[in-house]
Amino acid sequence: MFLEVITFILLIIFLVFYLRDPRSLIIGFLFNLFFCSFLILFVYLGFSSDHAIFRIIAAIPLFIIGFMLTFGIFALMIGLFLNARVLMRKEGRRFSNCLTLLAGLGILFSIVFLIVEPTRFLSPHFGPIFSGVFFIIVYFFFHLSNFLTAYFLYQFNRPRRNQDFIIVLGSGLINDKVPPLLASRINKAIDFYWKQAAVSFPPTIIFSGGQGPDENLPEAEAMQMYAVEKGIPTQHTIKEDRSVNTYQNMLFSKQIMDSRKEGKYNSIFTTNNFHLFRAGLYAKEAGLNSQGIGSKTAFYYWPNAMIREYIAIVVMGRKRHIKVVGVILGFSILLTTISFLFS
């Protein structure tokens, strides 16, 4: 009875936060808490049953978890190496395309470190330092799991077709033309535009993107021309050509919408699905009550993009992470110092 109540309460708490605003890492944390509680309840009820079939079903999650802990890390490492090879072959050998390779090497180094166990060659006094590093890794593991869960849940966002504005986030031009990555964002907005126009009224599309140092025209202008060529009426488009990053995309677009509708409007934004959650965080930071819809990304590009997104999420919360890591390392160094002094 206790487990059922706890699981139900965690579900209610998660739903309240998620329905109020899914643009938060706390959503991932709350869902993970609920899922763990549900999993424990599921296994407990299964093994408490007198029916063998229920016990077998209850053992399946334990088998999956055991398999992932045993072989999952090796499969992930191999998958990262294979993805890095495909990505660099298709997108070039730029550093930004090497993140999956670096992640795979990081896992390989960790496995070798655990096998060799170099700590045995050092003084036992350094034990607190290695314990501190372990707790830092655990901290970021849980932070990553919360991010992945929140990211996954945000993909289910389905805004109503009563939007006054659609913000299309820029991502850079190639030879002053709209590249495929940016085109997918515009096409997502165009698709939503026509679907809403068919049932209610046509929204206004805001193309948000300034002019880069290697570009001869603002992104917003190239994006607008692309959409007009696809049949979107010019009078239903607006150019926001000052922004140079996602936060400014949201902030400057909000200023345009506020000036036109005096703060009373509905809006959404479009971007690639891997960028969707972080863009939502920037929208929230800019004070914009707008949810997003994501365009599809090539599967081979997704792992590298997700690593980049997570790094950006960590940078967004760098002050909190520095405090946590600083406290852990500081306490570890203090214990190490005490150990040397009183040995």
Rank of each mutant, 00 (worst) to 15 (best):
I6D: 01
F299Q: 09
F130Q: 01
I107M: 09
F17C: 13
L329F: 13
P233G: 10
D176H: 07
V325H: 02
S290K: 02
T336L: 13
L144T: 08
N289Q: 10
L87G: 05
L148G: 05
A189C: 06
Q196H: 11
V168D: 03
F67E: 08
G231F: 08
F74Y: 15
I333V: 15
L10R: 07
G127V: 06
S184M: 13
S184F: 06
R20F: 14
F47M: 09
I322N: 04
Y247P: 06
S171W: 07
N157G: 08
Y18E: 04
P159A: 11
F142E: 00
L335P: 00
M1P: 05
L181Q: 03
G132E: 00
P180E: 11
P179M: 11
N289R: 09
N273I: 14
S343P: 00
L3D: 03
A227R: 08
V133N: 02
F156L: 11
E240H: 11
F156K: 10
R160Y: 10
L101S: 11
L99N: 02
T271K: 13
I136N: 08
D176P: 05
K296Q: 14
P61Q: 03
N175W: 00
T234V: 15
V116Q: 01
F54H: 07
G172N: 02
I65C: 08
D214W: 02
M77Y: 08
L39A: 15
I205F: 07
F121E: 06
F165K: 06
N32K: 12
S243D: 02
F340Q: 03
I256A: 04
G280D: 00
N157W: 04
S253N: 04
A305Q: 07
L45S: 07
F299D: 08
S290R: 02
I190C: 07
C36M: 08
P180D: 09
G66A: 10
A84Y: 14
L62D: 06
E262Q: 15
L251S: 12
V325G: 00
Y226N: 07
F165V: 05
Y300F: 15
F340N: 01
S24G: 08
I78G: 00
M316F: 13
N245Q: 05
I166F: 13
E240Y: 11
P303S: 14
S332C: 09
R20S: 12
M225H: 01
F74K: 13
F274K: 01
A283F: 10
Y247S: 06
N245D: 15
A220F: 05
K296H: 15
N157M: 10
V112K: 03
F299R: 13
A283P: 04
A52W: 14
G294L: 13
I136D: 03
L11M: 12
F207H: 04
F34A: 04
V228P: 00
Q291V: 14
A298S: 11
P213K: 12
